[in-house]
């Protein structure tokens, strides 16, 4: 694996290796909060064409804990225009000798293009592209689910996970459908028909228009952010109607299995897709998702540009302890 552009780039074993590595790294971080020397002398660039403070900070923290040098390149608001900008920016980064470029872009496929055209030699990591994919988010979601429901072990077979909300525009949903199914889980997409893509029947996931029909049987409920502008594009009539039919509220949480968890990739629209009771309930692992994101991204960087495997890490840990 040279780049991480899509969950499709990963085999099931690759994905499990990332999760296992993240487990080890998180255990070490929790205990000592120390830095690992793995990426000393390496340069990691955060190339963000779109604002996303939380994702950028998460990658930055991950890279720094592995001792990499981090360059933050925010292309938004600078003189970047359409067209050549992506190419020119890439060539600039190439000149700086980036070992990995973490790219967030508003256009689906921009990271794939960066990698395919080989404007840069370094690894390309997709940190969210348009309405396409967000693979590290899916990995951290899978990590979180596995931690709570599988004790950090093995795959996700036997679990049923609901992904609720604006599936049509969600890169988080696309990556999660691919990854969770790859890991053996059953995925059910819950959304109004307007917010499901034409062609969703090829995804292999179940589809439901009623959250109340599925919530009692799910092991995890992943709420997607719904942008208020979607209302103007006629995807749903009003915020109230959306919240009533698809929002996660106290009554729905009460229907959930004893062990089931509530997830959200953030940032949340409290009162729209999730109520305060939902976000702050004891089932909510939303804050934990953020911490897990750093471990998972460390694992991705470690395996992608550290030139190492999870076994090497085990050995390394053995040496140091």
């Amino acid at each position: 694996m040279r780049d991480l552009l899509s969950i499709n780039d990963l085999t099931k074993d690759d994905a499990l290796e990332i999760l296992d590595t993240a487990v080890q790294l998180s255990a070490l971080s929790d205990s000592s909060n120390r830095k690992f020397p793995t990426l000393r002398g390496r340069t990691v660039v955060n190339l963000f064409f779109e604002d996303s403070t939380r994702t950028r900070i998460s990658f930055e923290a991950a890279a720094k804990r592995l001792s990499a040098d981090v360059i933050n390149f925010s292309a938004k608001g600078s003189s970047v225009s359409k067209g050549e900008s992506l190419k020119d920016t890439a060539l600039t980064l190439q000149a700086m000798g980036a070992d990995a470029v973490i790219i967030r872009h508003g256009s689906s496929g921009a990271p794939a293009q960066l990698a395919r055209k080989r404007w840069i030699d370094g690894a390309v990591i997709n940190a969210g592209d348009g309405t396409h994919e967000h693979p590290t988010q899916a990995l951290l979601d899978a990590f979180t689910i596995r931690r709570h429901l599988k004790k950090d072990q093995g795959d996700l077979a036997g679990l049923k996970i609901a992904v609720v909300g604006d599936v049509l525009h969600s890169r988080v949903a696309r990556s999660n459908v691919l990854l969770l199914q790859k890991l053996g889980a059953t995925v059910v997409l819950v959304a109004p028909p307007t917010l499901l893509p034409v062609g969703v029947e090829h995804w292999g996931a179940q589809v439901s228009f009623a959250i109340d029909d599925v919530i009692a049987e799910c092991d995890a409920v992943m709420m997607l952010r719904v942008q208020k502008e979607r209302m103007e594009d006629l995807f749903f009539p009003s915020e109230r109607e959306y919240a009533r039919n698809f929002g996660l509220n106290a009554a729905r949480i009460a229907e959930m299995k004893e062990s089931a968890i509530v997830m959200h990739p953030g940032p949340m629209n409290r009162g729209l897709e999730i109520t305060a009771e939902g976000a702050d309930s004891k089932r909510s692992v939303i804050v934990e998702q953020v911490a897990n994101g750093v471990s998972v991204r460390m694992a991705v960087l470690y395996l992608l540009i550290g030139g190492a495997t999870s076994r090497d890490l085990a050995a390394q840990i053995g040496d140091q302890s």
Partner: peptide, 15 residues
């Protein structure tokens, strides 16, 4: 084109 591929690629469909 709007269909299986556009759904996968996250590109807006032209039905």
């Amino acid at each position: 084109n709007e269909g299986e591929v556009s759904a996968r690629l996250g590109l807006k469909g032209w039905p």
